[in-house]
Design a protein around this nucleic acid. Structure first.
Lengths: 341, 341
DNA sequence: CTGAAAGCGCTTACAG
DNA sequence: CTGAAAGCGCTTACAG
């Protein structure tokens, strides 16, 4: 591999000049510049980013840690981040934490080791409290994505971008109650995940506003896998008496478990059970049942996270920004009374 | 940030000794070692991996570029790679190429710049011939994942891991013909993608073996998006005369386009059209129609790719390994004659 | 307009 | 058993 010294000697200049030409960081005579550039070409020189990073403050790279890049919503967020990063000349280091706090921690440490200029995190459910502290100590710009932090006032705020879960939930409850549903089973998952907590709180608030009861047996929370959700939901559907008339799942995973329970009990959607979910399934237009779904603007969430990070890099002292984008509800037959199936 | 010099002076030793203690690369008196370790703790010292990498041959990191980490099959491969990498103390730099050759090229360059110890690539359809050459020139270990290379003999071989597409296709054709299907529409996509090419070739070979005709109008190839596939497939289903009785899609994306065409024409699966696909949809057990699917052992593909890479790092001169794992076929109602729907 | 030289934080022969 | 010093490949004051 050719080094800068090779280029300099071939061009008959100093390495300072080569560096300045490459970085356009001070004026160089056109003719000299020319010589340098052709020496670069002749030697096939490529700047060593490791050495470069060691001298500079920046690495022009950012890190993204998501709990599972394979989940549809996260996949789109990743795309958004990639697009925006590439657009801004940043390279992206991506890591999955697989919903495992230890993996998440390890991923963050690896990214810090590589001196990323900033971090974007969609944290896992059991994310340790120390993680944000660790990043703050390193003085690394940080943006929280989708799963936000509920920080106390004096801990300092963090830039965050998520969706307006309350509003989406209110609209969904509106829709379901307008169809005459009074007994709605909420499958809300792990409430340590802020987005799930917000949906849970949003549901209760919306029901309260409507003057409707929310009996505890219709709040199914705490399950983390589809299988566990199946086990929890199934008994709730077993007997016709007291059975909910609608199920509302707060994530794709939860929807999968709940739907499996519905089918296991021989109930048809929407014939004998209405069903709606957040996030939902890919290619769902092709399959039955057609499920009413709250779609996040996932791609834009990713893009916005990068924007916030860039702003933060520009202006480290600015107050934190908290962005809430609006979701879109796709109404389908699974919550429609007029349907025959 | 504390540096090695800080640690050394606090412990009253040289930086050599600190380095050797940290790397366990030469014997150090237990008592000295102790002093160094407590100085490390006291200063909160963390080794600078950039500086370290600059002096060493290795960065203990590998790069993975996939065409879309959000597609189910690729998502599982990514998980396999991550798991195996973590297990071997390697950190993983992941990049999506979004089926765009330019993005792929940029991703590879970024990874080379970061001096990954090796690369794993699931290449895009239009991947430039120069890409492999570029990596070879850099003398970087490389493993091809899922989408293999059809290299000429004297270009030198590359380590690769994929599935046995021929065998899976033969079994599928066996299954369909045994159900009485003679007119099978093959939706094969972009034949520059080696796995799709293999499925295409496998189909023709299997049909030939059965002594069955493969009329050109039942070979739908070259489409890259679901929308384009829809447009190509729809007219083939428009009139009952000459309509295929079964459709075989070679990827999730192609299946989506074809299925949309089937539904647009008002045909029911499997009532009026049998349907099978490679890769398939997630959570497909929950939805109708239930589609016969060839599942790749995607996670294991990812793991195997890392194994091959590690072997290559150990032994750069060894002949290339080409690994073929077996897929599993999930037979479902979409290809079952006895079903009423 | 350009160059000589220090320095980023490590690793590793070389020497004792 | 340990240390002084060179060097990895850059960037950047400093000097002219």
């Amino acid at each position: 591999m050719a080094t800068m010294v090779d280029v300099a000697s071939l061009a008959g200049v100093s390495t300072s000049t080569v560096s300045h030409v490459l970085n356009e960081t001070r004026h160089v005579e056109p003719e000299t510049k020319e010589r340098v550039m052709s020496a670069v070409k002749a030697t096939g020189y490529r700047r060593d980013v490791l050495a470069r990073s060691m001298r500079r403050a920046r690495t022009d790279s950012i890190g993204l840690v998501v709990s599972d890049a394979g989940e549809p919503a996260f996949a789109d967020m990743v795309h958004g981040v990639e697009e925006a990063a590439a657009h801004n000349g940043l390279s992206l280091l991506l890591a999955n934490s697989a919903e495992d706090p230890a993996r998440e921690r390890a991923a963050v440490e690896a990214l810090l080791d590589r001196r990323v200029d900033g971090l974007i995190l969609a944290r896992v459910a059991g994310s340790t409290a120390g993680l944000l502290e660790r990043i703050r100590k390193e003085k690394k710009p940080l943006v929280l994505l989708d799963r936000l932090a509920d920080l106390g006032g004096d801990q300092g705020q963090v830039d965050q971008v998520g969706v307006n879960n309350q509003a989406a939930m209110a609209a969904l409850v509106d829709h379901l109650t307008s169809q005459g549903h009074e007994r709605i089973l909420l499958v809300s998952g792990d409430l340590r995940v802020s987005s799930l907590r917000e949906r849970y709180d949003g549901f209760r608030a919306a029901m309260l506003t409507k003057g409707m009861a929310v009996p505890p047996e219709l709040l199914c929370e705490g399950t983390v896998t589809a299988a566990a959700t199946f086990d929890r939901v199934r008994p709730l559907l077993a007997t016709a008496s007291g059975r909910p008339t609608a199920i509302l799942a707060c994530s794709t995973l939860l929807a999968a478990g709940a739907l499996r329970a519905v089918q296991h009990e021989g109930l048809r959607v929407p014939g004998s059970m209405a069903f709606a979910t957040f996030d939902g399934f890919t290619y769902s237009d092709l399959f039955q049942p057609q499920i009413t779904t709250v779609r996040q603007p996932a791609f834009q969430l990713g893009e916005s996270a990068v924007s916030l990070l860039l702003q933060r890099l520009e202006n480290p002292a600015a107050p934190a920004t908290i962005l809430r984008l609006e979701s879109r509800i796709e109404f389908r037959r699974s919550t429609s009374n007029s349907s025959t199936d």
